[in-house]
């Protein structure tokens, strides 16, 4: 019993210790953002790496998720003669929840893990130490450009995921299952609010998810034990922690914006 409590206490202290380290890291990171105005090329290069290269998986996943939503929605609504609301169901599901959440999870798996592994390897091969010895701050040169590029890319990827998802739903509902095209779009237009659904859903959520996903990814790389096992663990932690934090944060934001 006492041993269990002691172990629990140690775990809690370790967790608080890491949270403190991550917060201090974030503060230094934010301090380094000011230097990026003079070096936009660093951010553009990272935008390509974390954003453009993530597009295929985001687009393909969005398409399939939208198609599944179209199929499932039709299968359930057809019994009630309510297939005219299929456009609304697909759009609201994607805009409020699935777009930002799934895009964030895919981003963590594709780009977040790559960020962690890259920074961890730079640490293991003494590239970060070499940079410091050359009087170059890795926060300004390495961490801040990656963080800000990911932060900018995440909402764009979520937007693309959502848009392609809606197109996937349209393809299945209208082209395959015979739902009227005009009804599909007009119902969606009438029911999906710009502020209430699009801004509170895909925009705010993906901005919040982008912040935490990139904070976790860059911090885990920075804090990785500089060994192959350490980098492997850090990469795993990035994906697992991002998934948990994104889902928990999604609940909080949903309760704030869409709670009854």
């Amino acid at each position: 019993m006492i041993d269990g409590l002691r172990r629990l206490g140690r775990l809690a202290l370790n967790w608080l210790n890491r949270l403190g380290k991550a917060t201090l890291f974030l503060l230094r990171l934010l301090g380094a953002l000011a230097t990026l105005g003079k070096r936009p090329g660093l951010v553009v290069r990272q935008l390509y790496s974390v954003g453009v290269l993530s597009l295929p998986i985001i687009a393909m996943s969005g398409l399939f998720v939208g198609m599944v939503l179209g199929l499932q929605g039709y299968a359930n609504l057809v019994d009630f003669g309510a297939t005219s609301t299929l456009g609304t169901v697909v759009a609201l599901s994607l805009v409020r929840e699935l777009g930002p959440v799934l895009a964030a999870l895919l981003y963590a798996a594709r780009a977040g893990s790559a960020l962690t592994a890259e920074i961890g390897l730079m640490k293991a091969t003494e590239q970060l130490a070499a940079m410091q010895m050359m009087a170059v701050d890795p926060f300004a040169r390495v961490f801040a450009p990656r963080f800000i590029a990911g932060f900018v890319a995440m909402p764009l990827l979520a937007g693309i995921f959502t848009a392609i998802g809606i197109l996937g739903g349209y393809f299945v509902a209208v082209k395959q299952l015979g739902v009227d095209s005009g009804t599909f779009w007009s119902q969606m237009q009438a029911s999906v609010g710009w502020i209430d659904d699009v801004v509170h859903g895909v925009v705010v959520k993906s901005v919040a998810f982008g912040w935490v996903a990139n904070w976790i990814a860059v911090f885990e790389g920075y804090d990785a034990t500089p060994t192959s096992e350490g980098i492997s663990l850090a990469t795993t932690r990035t994906v697992v922690n991002t998934a948990l934090v994104v889902l928990a944060l999604d609940f909080v934001l949903t309760a704030i914006f869409f709670g009854v």
Binding site: Q127, M133, D137
Partner: peptide, 22 residues
């Protein structure tokens, strides 16, 4: 940190691995 970085501009280090940016 600022003064340390100024000092480091006058010192250099060759790491065991070379530590070239890959």
């Amino acid at each position: 940190r600022r003064e340390l970085y100024q000092l480091r501009k006058r010192m250099s280090m060759l790491f065991q691995s070379g530590a070239l940016f890959t």
